[in-house]
Design a protein around this nucleic acid. Structure first.
Length: 869
RNA sequence: GGGUGGUUAGCUCAGCGGUAGAGCGCCUCGCUUACACCGAGGAUGUCGGGGGUUCGAAACCCUCACCGCCCA
């Protein structure tokens, strides 16, 4: 009997985890049923990129989502965690294009043609895409694989067409020629959020325009764009330049006359107070250009090569041209000053880091203002809750200031824009079930939509929208969106916008739970260049998925970053090992969850104490989980399991087992009950080891489908808790004494606990003696050492010399502490203002503290007097 | 430049009005039959500086300094 329940002496997570996950999949535990009567709980995964692999940020994000989902599943909800990926337009196209260039002979996508190229991308996806999905299994993600979605799937593509047409009909999508962010390497437009600004060392050059009659000095960080200047602008109130407004100056190098215009956008204090206006290559200049009819002169091609300026610079790369232009101006004596390096913010393509070029071009845009207003209001009106609430201002800041969203991309991989242009200038938007025009001269827009356009539909497109599917009815709106605050803007706002629009004002989720970033050991941001990245797979190999998950969850304070180090993960593995060994001990001693838990009156005080703490911990941890306080929930469980259960209860229970009989049987039931519940409440965070231990302990089918523990208030007993605190301090005092006296903890010594029989600690004496190895006094008992712990006077027969000096030092130290404590209390109580104004409860506490310290001081003084010498 | 978060033990962080906490690290003991991935004991902080509010401030207000993030 005992033999078959025995655990292997060693715990090896790596062997344990994969088969368990496999068994869960085989038993279909993660598949949600849209027809069930259970209340729905749904999380859609923030779709990872199809080219990506699991990084530590995913590991955190997924750990939290899995914890929430597993808990709800155990609570009896119809829990759906829906997995999938997005098609990552630029990134994926880049990957496949790179493959093509590495072929012999190297090819470009243009060699293949659009259709063939897209086919290649699908082939790539089938072969190498979605590596992250397998890694999610290793982490233990309890996602419903039968519902896995991809943004390029047919159903999701229908959703894209549907929303595009609806938005277009409401005039919330429009096409216009604007300055957009252009990546000269990816050869596509980018939205604002795909541009990353960094402080780069550039240059700041002042150039004199004009001639002897009239000249003006402009300042610029981009001298090469002067070839496309259409004007010089000054502030209308700038006395230095007022007389020049309306006149024309000579633009050097191109030898064109350009007007001097007045515009309030110009900051007189900045540079020389005069700026060049290159309306086709700068967003601010574009605005000014529109106001003042400045010609939009395009001087670069899509690759960022100078073109059409009619100067010697044509054909040069923009950065070479910058040098060359300044060089020529210098020769002409037109450079007034040069500052180099001049550090200023420069935009880079978030996919390839190429410096972004503002470019005038025809693109499709979403008119954001009315949609974003609704997205902001949903949170303002409490329809959607942001957790933690402190981060809501960041959300508002974003949605309230959102610019129109450029959604067209000059790519081939993605949802092609469903717009046909007719021979006579017709523009036709084709919905999902409509036929595209076929006549001569009709052509579809060549561009595709921004990946985020389809990701923004994720919370309902994955559930079957635009069809009125059962999934949609059951699971929309979803329960909670879990994501890092760093992408609050990237797509949370966009999902809100589209969700509210498509679903007639029903937001895509009730709650947005935000977590922070995982940083390195020293709190520094992880980056490839710093070389401080952590590979979650490596840590899972070494310490197990449970250990990684526990570390991440335990560090997850709402909305704040967390540091992670290998030592912390090792510590979590140690915790898992602790659980393993405790369970091993439990099983070896016949612990069982099969027997009903005896009534309080039948149990020892220590049994009742651990049950009290267990139910307290269940209550606490459950509340924390409910409030997305993962760190606090884990901490509560950790300390209960390790400190209360392993270090105190199991040690004390050894005396019950030694005793045998009913007391031992009760301990078996208590341990069984505690472990059963502990493993349940820990399961969402550490699914593997809890499952392995629980099935062995209880013989149950699986923790995945087991019931979530509920706190039994009747077992919580503050009096027992308090008494046990006294027991603990008594034991600690004696241990300190033994330690100070150099007595080995394994050596039994005879001792007396005077007065214990009449104290509240009487029921604990046996256990105390056992754990401390204090034997009953023998006939020739001679007191050679004594201490007072709490209300108990303890006397020991050390049958030999006592280290009086050590004892005196200890007592004097304790005395000093007690006296200091008494002084603080005394000062308060002597303060008339305190007595008059402090609440009754506080005064009582301080009074009690004073009495306690008085007693301590008296006792210690007495002890010191008794010391020989 | 505009927002916004932070500054608590050697490190990373909780605590956010009533005697300073955790994990890791550190020191001393210890192979006591679950566990050395362990046990027992211990040390460690004028809670960034300066003002203020309060009987009482790490916590609330003001101010300065220094980090960080987001957006320009």
């Amino acid at each position: 009997m005992a033999a078959e329940r025995e655990l292997p002496t060693h715990f090896s997570p790596a062997e344990l985890e994969a088969p368990l996950y496999q068994s869960w999949i085989e038993r279909n535990y993660f598949s949600a049923d849209a027809n069930s009567q259970k209340a729905p709980f749904c999380i859609v995964i923030p779709p990872p990129n199809v080219t990506g692999s699991l990084h530590i940020g995913h590991a955190l994000d997924h750990t939290l989502q899995d914890t929430l989902t597993r808990r709800r599943r155990m609570q009896g909800y119809e829990a759906l965690w829906l997995p999938g990926m997005d098609h990552a337009g630029i990134a994926t196209q880049n990957v496949v294009e790179k493959q093509l260039t590495q072929q012999q002979p190297p090819k470009s996508r243009h060699d293949l043609g659009r259709e063939e190229f897209v086919k290649k991308v699908w082939e790539w996806k089938a072969e190498s895409g979605g590596a992250i999905l397998g890694q999610m299994k290793r982490l233990g993600d309890s996602v419903d694989w039968s519902r896995e979605r991809f943004t390029m799937d047919e159903g999701l593509s229908r959703a894209v067409l549907t929303i595009f047409k609806r938005l277009y009909e409401k005039e919330l999508i429009y096409r216009a020629e604007r300055i957009i962010n252009w990546c000269p390497r990816c050869l596509t437009a980018l939205s604002d959020i795909e541009v990353e600004h960094s402080d780069d060392a550039g240059e700041f050059v002042q150039v004199r325009y004009g001639d002897d009659q009239l000249n003006i000095t402009v300042a610029t960080t981009r001298p090469e764009t002067m070839l496309g200047d259409g004007a010089v602008a000054v502030h209308p109130d700038d006395e230095r330049y007022k007389h020049m407004i309306g006149k024309e100056v000579l633009l050097p190098l191109v030898n064109r006359m350009i007007p001097i215009i007045a515009d309030e956008l110009v900051e007189p204090e900045f540079g020389t107070g005069a700026v060049k206006v290159t309306a086709a290559h700068d967003p601010n200049d574009f605005e000014m250009g529109r106001r003042h009819n400045v010609p939009m002169i395009v001087i670069m091609n899509e690759h960022g090569i100078m073109e059409g300026t009619g100067t010697e610079f044509d054909g040069m790369d923009r950065f070479d041209a910058r040098k060359a232009v300044v060089e020529r101006l210098r020769e002409m004596g037109r450079v007034v000053s040069e500052k180099r390096p001049y550090v200023h913010a420069v935009g880079h393509c978030s996919r390839c880091d190429t410096t972004v070029e503002p470019r005038l071009s025809m693109q499709w845009f979403v008119k954001v203002a009315p949609l974003a207003k609704a997205a902001g209001d949903a949170v303002r009106n409490g329809l959607v809750k942001i957790e933690p609430a402190e981060l809501a201002p960041r959300y508002f800041e974003w949605v309230d200031n959102m610019h129109d969203w450029c959604i067209s991309r000059q790519l081939w991989w993605g949802h092609r824009i469903p717009v046909w242009y007719g021979p006579n200038g017709e523009v036709l938007v084709v919905g999902p079930d409509e036929k595209a025009p076929t006549g001569a001269g009709w052509e579809q827009d060549p561009d595709v939509l921004d990946t985020w356009f389809s990701s923004a539909l994720w919370p309902f497109s994955t559930l079957g929208w635009p069809d009125e599917s059962g999934d949609l009815a059951k699971f929309y709106p979803t329960s909670v969106l879990v994501t890092g605050y760093d992408i609050l803007f990237f797509w949370v706002a966009r999902m809100m916008i589209f969700g509210l629009f498509a679903m007639d004002g029903t937001p895509p989720f009730h709650t947005i739970a935000l977590h922070g970033l995982v940083r390195d050991k020293f709190g520094k941001k992880m980056s490839k260049s710093r070389g401080n990245t952590i590979d979650p797979l490596e840590f899972m190999d070494k310490y197990g998925a449970d250990a990684l998950r526990f570390s991440l969850a335990r560090g997850a304070n709402p909305g704040t970053d967390q540091a992670l180090a290998e030592e912390w993960v090792a510590g979590s593995r140690n915790f898992a090992t602790k659980l393993w060994n405790a369970s091993r001990f439990a099983l070896l001693n016949g612990a069982t969850s099969a027997r009903p838990l005896p009534e309080k009156s039948a149990l020892t005080a220590i049994d009742n104490w651990i049950l009290s703490r267990l139910h307290q911990t269940i209550k606490e941890a459950d509340n924390y989980f409910e409030g997305f306080e993962f760190a606090k929930a884990c901490d509560a469980i950790y300390h209960f399991a390790w400190d209360d259960f392993c270090d105190w209860y199991l040690e004390l229970a050894k005396s019950s087992f030694a005793q045998g009989g009913a007391q031992a049987e009760n301990a078996q039931a208590v341990i069984g009950h505690v472990l059963d519940n502990l493993l349940r409440i820990l399961h969402p965070v550490m699914p593997f080891i809890t499952e392995a231990l629980w099935t062995r302990l209880t013989g149950g089918e699986s923790l995945v489908i087991a019931a979530w523990p509920e706190a039994d208030e009747s077992r919580i007993d503050e009096r027992t808790n308090a008494a046990m605190e006294e027991v603990k301090s008594l034991i600690t005092e004696v241990r300190r004494f033994r330690n100070d006296q150099g007595v080995k903890s394994s050596a039994p010594i005879p001792g007396r606990f005077n007065g214990i029989d009449k104290s509240a600690l009487a029921p604990y004496e046996k256990a105390i003696r056992s754990v401390l190895r204090i034997t009953d006094p023998a006939e020739n008992f001679t007191v050679s050492g004594s201490i007072v712990a709490g209300s108990i006077n303890c006397e020991f027969d050390l049958s030999g010399t006592v280290d009086v000096a050590a004892e005196r030092a200890r007592l004097e130290k304790d005395l000093a502490t007690a006296e200091k404590d008494r002084e603080t209390a005394r000062v308060k109580l002597d303060n008339a203002d305190f007595m008059a104004k402090a609440p009754e409860k506080v005064v009582t506490t301080i009074k009690a503290r004073l009495e306690e310290t008085d007693r301590d001081i008296a006792r210690i003084t007495e002890q010191l007097k008794k010391l020989p010498g």
